[in-house]
Amino acid sequence: MRYRAMNKKEILRVVREYTIYIAFLLVVIFFAITLRGKGFFTAANALNIIRQTAALTIMGVGLTFVISTGGIDLSIGSTVGLSSLIAAIILREGGNILLAFLGGAGIGLMVGACNGFLYAKLKMPAFISTLAVSGIVYGIGLLPTQSSPVPIADTLFNNIFGSGNIGPVPILLIWMAAAVVLGHLMLRHMKYGRQVLAVGGNEISAKYSGINTEKIKFLVMLFCGLMAGIAGCLYAGRMHTGRCTFGEGAETQVITGVVLGGTIMSGGKGSIIGTLIGSLMIGMISNGLVIMGLNVAQQKIVQGIILLLAIAFGIEQEREA
């Protein structure tokens, strides 16, 4: 009976909800066929994709919250760079692993707090304010090293935050899973997540419902910064290096992943599981394109087109609602 009561619009919406999973499968099948025998459809490559995507997914978890309020954070890329650099410098100067991690994550928190203040308190459009912050953060990263890399010799750090495995499982997969589980619980099963979606869905109504909208908007930026800071440590661990240029342009990929996952740019609707699938899809496409032999320029063009398609799809979905 329930299904009969659903009208066409609703059925369409249910179909759309699963589109990302269907698309994901189609991409897998597409590459499995076109790249047959070239090592795409192997367990080793799958783990490879996860390693390459883990940091992007973690950034995506943070960004999903920001976008769910109707905001955006364009500073995550440069935050990743600065965070990796700070972690590497702390290790070079003899600091221990914990200190290096706290340094990297702390940078993220600081940038996030700054973004949050501009977004929530000063009510600046996040698109512009985080772009400006991104420039500042990048510049700060250039100051100590002029963009040259700082190598990390601490193998334990590199193992914990990058290249290590626990049994057959890459450590990066565990980091990623932890972030996704945390993000999913927060967004779906906690008061905070409900309030985030309410603010993004209708800020005035949220305010009239007794939600401290400024606090919520500050916290999403803070959390997003923290995730970018942690992602910076993972970059450092995987590359055995800290460098302020890490994460350059990562915003595009992260935003694409989030939007592909069904989170809507104008806010009010978000999904962490979607972000996971979306990010993996982006990672898989990049990986597949590399195996196909496309160069960086061609990859960038394809990524841009995918982002546009994802956003167009999201807008279409909003119109339906």
Partner: peptide, 21 residues
Amino acid sequence: RVQGLVMDHSVKENVLITVLD
């Protein structure tokens, strides 16, 4: 429409927003 509800959210989500605690 403007102050009372989040129009794109469900009945459930709208009702529960004041009772989350």
